[in-house]
Structures are given as structure tokens and as C-alpha cells.
Amino acid sequence: MNPSLTLGPNLFHWPAEQRIDFYNRIADESPVSTVYLGEVICSKRTPFFDDVHLPAVAERLERAGKTVVYSSFSEVVIKRERNILMEWSKQEGRDLEVNNTAALLHLKDRPHRIGGLLNVYNEDTMAYLAGQGATHFSLLPELPRAAIARLGEKARELGVGVEVQVFGRASLALSARCYHARAHERTKDNCQFVCGDDPDGMTLMTMDEKPFLTINGIQTLSYGYLDLMADIDDMRAIGVTHFRVMPHTCDMIVVTRAFDDVLAGRIDVAEGEARLRELGIEAPFVNGFYRGRAGHDWVPRVTEMA
């Protein structure tokens, strides 16, 4: 199978105009084959973009030849979230990516995708979900290579896709509490959408001023940006079929072209990595999870990995 480059769901709360411009540019200039759309972090944000602009943006991307997949909520608690999820689950025409088990209740025996926020850690769980209609699995960022290799093997046997995030901040934790609101001494109900001030998330520093984590509403992400460009060939060999970059405010056309050029063999990894390092991202790049180390580590690729 030819490897595919995908653009994951935008995790952050960007103004609607910025999002529309962003996806227009992706449609016109980015080589990604698939774009995931839809709010996955906070249901309070949907009136700004999803409820109004999503269909038009999806159509625009499809006219540009992209496959559009809808990505759904990671936390489903209140009635409104449950209702939206049920509606989305019934929708025809586009695949739904599931980030909470609540959606699985509605999707039995209907094709759907499993998102990178749903816990699929092993081949038995993958096979179980595939048996109920899952066709594609986006893996959790914390999985080490050894586990991905076993999942890749099982996916080949099942005929399902396997997607790994190769660029952007990694999701580390979810909560029912909004930490963005908390930082501003507000509650989730009275948040006044302060998360919109931080289009790549809010940096948390340690008491000795070392950047550590990133807050995005109820989500906690890594401070470092994942960069698994050097591992793409290795991942292809162990059964990864799709490579996901996550939207950030850096130039995502440059990012997606760099990954596409490496995937297609037009440039080597050193050149691709050099391009990523010219983007002006302040945070360090990290790849520890894939290498079976602490996630914040950057482990240079030396020779063959175990």
C-alpha cells in the first residue's frame, strides 16, 4: 500500500476565519490525502466553527481531492455531547473517527475509524473492534515501536489501516476539568473561551522556569513537538500505512510538503528535518515514546533499532 499523509483534527480553539483560511490553504497547497475535521476537545467550542462552517469546509477540501473524515469528541458526559455524538454517528457519506467508547454503541457493524484518543493498546482489542466495523486505527502517541510493530502485523492480517502521529504536540491527558479556565481563575461554565488566546496551547513551566507541558482546555499535551520523520521508513516496514501531522500555527504547508517529500523519496530525512527546524518552533522536537523511552526525550537515530 502506498503511504498516506494525513492532517489530524485541529485540537485548538482558533477563530473561525483563521480556520477557514487554514483549510482553504490546505485544500490548495498541501499534499495531504486525508483531512480530519471536527471538534474533539470541548463541546462548548462547536457553535463557533463546527455548527456553522464545517460542511462548507469539508466540501471545499473534497473538491480539492482530499478525503474528509469527521473526528468526534474525546470526552462525552453531558446531554448535549451525547446528542451531538449520536447525530454524528448516524451521518452518512463520511467516515467518523471515534475518540470515545460512547460512539461505539451506535456504530456496530458500520464502517468507522478509531481515533488516537481511544485506548487501543493491543492486537486483540484491535481485532475485536475491527470485527465490529472499525476499518482504520490511529494509534496512541505513547505506544513504543515494539507494540506498533505487533499492531501493524495484526492490521495487515485484518486489512485495516494504521496511522501514527509523526508531527505536533502529543496528547498526554484528558480531564473533565478545564485547566485553561482554571489558570484564569474561572470555571469551565464561565470560561469565556480563554483557550482561544493560545492557538498552540498554553505553556506550563516548572517552578524553575523550565517549559514542561501544554494546556488546551481539558487536554494536556506535551511541550515538545513530536517529529518521527526519521522513523518513517522503519514504520512503513512494520505496517504503518498512514502518517498524521497535527495542525499548529507554524507553516503547515511547509510541514506537510516536507513529510510528503520524504515519504515519496524526493528528499532525504536530513533535508526534511532541516526544513522542520527552520519553521521557528520554539519548543524542542521529541521522539522518546516511539523509541521506548520517556516521551520528552529526543533520541538521535543511530543505527538499526532493536
Binding site: 470526552e75 505513547e142 502529543a170 491527558a173 520517556a294
Partner: peptide, 21 residues
């Protein structure tokens, strides 16, 4: 704890040991 249990890999990010695994 306030993190959704079963959906937290903060420890793994810092130490290389996973809460879930």
C-alpha cells in the same frame, strides 16, 4: 486525581514508564 483515569500518559512522558501499560 483530576485526570480522566485510563487516559493519562504524563508519567510516561517524563519517566518512560506508562500508567496504562
Amino acid at each position: 486525581g483530576l485526570m480522566v483515569e485510563g487516559r493519562c500518559s504524563l508519567t510516561n512522558y517524563v519517566t518512560g514508564q506508562s500508567t496504562n501499560m
